[in-house]
């Protein structure tokens, strides 16, 4: 849920349920890297509750849009990591099997 002002969509705090440092730190990193973001951060109000507050303050764009785009960038990064990793594993396995065939 978003806690922000009705008139000022630039600055908002988003409260995510059932999330922790895993997602929040990654998206905070990506938010920081976005040039439209003036300030960003996250906090966990209480460690026993699975809630994360993400604060976004932008230079002009809607905070919600900027946050959404950061998540989409994160998805893209993950997809690229996955494809690169899978390709590396396939290459390594084929090199290994070739070496075994040559050695045997």
């Amino acid at each position: 849920m978003e806690h922000g002002s009705l008139t000022d969509s630039k600055n908002s705090t988003f409260c995510l349920m059932d999330e922790d440092h895993t997602l929040a730190n990654s998206v905070r990193f990506l938010l920081n890297k976005d040039p439209r973001v003036e300030f960003c951060g996250y906090s966990i109000p209480h460690p026993s509750e699975n809630k994360v507050n993400i604060r976004v303050q932008t230079t002009g764009d809607s905070a919600k849009d900027v946050l959404k785009e950061s998540f989409q960038d994160l998805i893209f990064l993950c997809q690229h990591v996955r494809s690169t990793f899978e390709k590396s594993v396939a290459d390594f396995k084929s090199t290994q099997s070739r070496q075994e065939m040559n050695g045997a």
Binding site: F14, F71, Q72, L74, I75, C78, Q79
Partner: peptide, 14 residues
């Protein structure tokens, strides 16, 4: 994949 799913879930909530 799980990290991607988490992001997608939040995007759909937003």
């Amino acid at each position: 994949k799980i990290l991607e799913e988490k992001c997608e879930r939040v995007i759909s909530e937003l």
